[in-house]
Design a protein around this nucleic acid. Sequence first.
DNA 1: GTCTATAATCTGATAGAC
DNA 2: GTCTATCAGATTATAGAC
Lengths: 206, 206
Amino acid sequence: MSRDRRAARRQATRDEIVAAAWELVREQGLAGLALRDLGDRVGMKAQSLYSYFASKSEIYDAMFREGYLAFAAHNDDLVALADRVDADTATILRRTAHRFFEFCTSDPVRYQLLFQRTIPEFTPSPESYAVAVQAYEQMSELLAGIGVRDQATLDLWSAVLTGLTDQQISNDPGGARWSRLVDRAVDMLITESHTAATTDNESEKA
Amino acid sequence: MSRDRRAARRQATRDEIVAAAWELVREQGLAGLALRDLGDRVGMKAQSLYSYFASKSEIYDAMFREGYLAFAAHNDDLVALADRVDADTATILRRTAHRFFEFCTSDPVRYQLLFQRTIPEFTPSPESYAVAVQAYEQMSELLAGIGVRDQATLDLWSAVLTGLTDQQISNDPGGARWSRLVDRAVDMLITESHTAATTDNESEKA
DNA sequence: GTCTATAATCTGATAGAC
DNA sequence: GTCTATCAGATTATAGAC
């Protein structure tokens, strides 16, 4: 049917626009995305973009969705690895941490869009948000399968890992100053998870 | 001398403008600061602000400087505490971590300006940057006095602490989901610092 | 579906009268 | 030092011809 072909063509153009948006955003920063530049890049007037997206925010939304789909895909083979019986827990956790770290630092702008709240004019649509939630669930199921189950411990893990990536991105972009510390951090977390009964801040009781 | 009084008056107005800028920025976000709004807030036309600051960036710079002065002041009595012989290391470290955490989370916008790189159009002046450097040196001297000396360990500490504050600010603003984990994180770091000889990523050798 | 034209707003910054 | 007037530019978005 020609209906299908038209829809496919339309989707291809949308994809092309989103790809160009990623390029621009890597050059000029996430907030610096301008529809005029975007139109130039794909060879059409900025106004024509409105034939494909109802607003600038919808373009961010498509990028957000695409980013989380990439995140989920990136984690798929991690899950496969975790399901193998012969790999020990520490190995799996180290690998998982490195993969997460690498996913984040390899594309700082994507990291900013996906994991930080820095574009005030943009809030993900329910549909895109659902994609994000699904990716998180995949991740926490993976960790739960290894033994990281209670919320507090999970929160500690996420804080340490995002802390490392944040520092790497903002203080040593392209370097390895914090990536070198990933294994050390993971081992530290593993040890802690084994010893620590759940404790609240001791200083609060003083 | 009337020269002095004039200078004092001028400085007072500058301070007033900066204070109003902090207010606005807490309401509308760091990037959302508009000179027209700022003029309204202090009761003058936006154009008149240029009698006090040469550019918008100079206003950010004054805020940056003020923020790091506040940070240094905030840490002064931590240094005093650390100099007392009767306090044990773990106590000092826990207190230091909590103070840092509290300083950051109590004013997210200030945190953004001081510790994240999120305003593209602003780079601190050499003078203001020097204030920041001084505050960092104060902090690392404090940690060095307790035993955290090598750069890698210091980096690990900063990653964990900023990770906790980041998560708290962006995922549970006003709550305590990650602040509850500060002691646990500090104890974990202390234990790790005692046991770990300096090691690089083990998985790199595989 | 793409274009031209343009609306409606916002921005930071400057010139010059008072 | 404060004002009025204005520049010079950006932004997102809409209307209507083709």
